[in-house]
Structures are given as structure tokens and as C-alpha cells.
């Protein structure tokens, strides 16, 4: 039974994604870390689907759709920001800082 190991690997991958978001400043790499976290969640969905029915795999399907939509819109925003500020370093994007 691979349920326990799969959930453990999923936890590790999710934490690596969180760590990446916390330690990097490049917007594109932070975006990749978000995809990594979504992927870790997909892994736990699939692992539980093996025992609780194929509903979990359908959720993975939805997560992938939303991730694709998110990537498309997110990159449009990133390109708009780059055109405006000539940088993707999140430290230089501080308009909302008081």
C-alpha cells in the first residue's frame, strides 16, 4: 500500500514549494513554486483516490484546469508588470507599502 509514503512525499514537496516562495524574489520562480505546491496537492489527491474512489482523480483534473488558467492570467500580469517596471524582483514592487 503506497498511501502513507505518497502522502509523506506530497507533504515534503509542498513544504519545498512553500520554502521556495519564502526565499526567492523572482516573480517567475515564485510562480513555479506555486505550481510545485499544486502538484504536491495533486499527488495526495491521487493517493487518496486509490482508496476513496475516482472522485479524487476528478479533483486533480479540476486543479490542473485552474492551474492552466492561473498560469495564463498570471503570466499576462507578469508581462504587464515587466513592461511597466523593467524588473521582476518583488522587492522593487512596493507601491502598496505605506
Amino acid at each position: 500500500m503506497l498511501l502513507g509514503p505518497a502522502l509523506g512525499v506530497s507533504a515534503i514537496l509542498f513544504s519545498i514549494g512553500v520554502l521556495g516562495v519564502l526565499i526567492r524574489r523572482n516573480a517567475i520562480i515564485i510562480f513555479m513554486c506555486v505550481e510545485l505546491m499544486l502538484n504536491a496537492v495533486n499527488l495526495s489527491f491521487v493517493a487518496l483516490a486509490q482508496q476513496l474512489g475516482t472522485d479524487g482523480q476528478v479533483f486533480v483534473f479540476f486543479v490542473m484546469t485552474v492551474a492552466a488558467a492561473e498560469a495564463a492570467v498570471g503570466f499576462a500580469i507578469i508581462i504587464a508588470i515587466y513592461r511597466h517596471k523593467e524588473t521582476l524582483d518583488l522587492q522593487n514592487l512596493n507601491l502598496l507599502r505605506g
Binding site: V46, Q50, F61, A71
Partner: peptide, 30 residues
């Protein structure tokens, strides 16, 4: 790992949608 967890269709989707489409989008923007 998806294949080993009996999710063959999801594994194919993963390679096509994630590794294919989304990552090409990433490299294209870079």
C-alpha cells in the same frame, strides 16, 4: 508516481498539460 497509484489517465494529463503546455509557457515567458 501517479501511474503507480493507479491514475494512468491523470499521469498522461500531467505530462501533456503540466510538463508540456504550462512549462512551455514558463520557458516562453522567460
Amino acid at each position: 508516481m501517479f501511474v503507480l497509484l493507479d491514475a494512468h489517465f491523470i499521469a498522461v494529463l500531467q505530462v501533456m498539460v503540466y510538463s508540456g503546455a504550462i512549462m512551455v509557457l514558463f520557458l516562453f515567458v522567460i
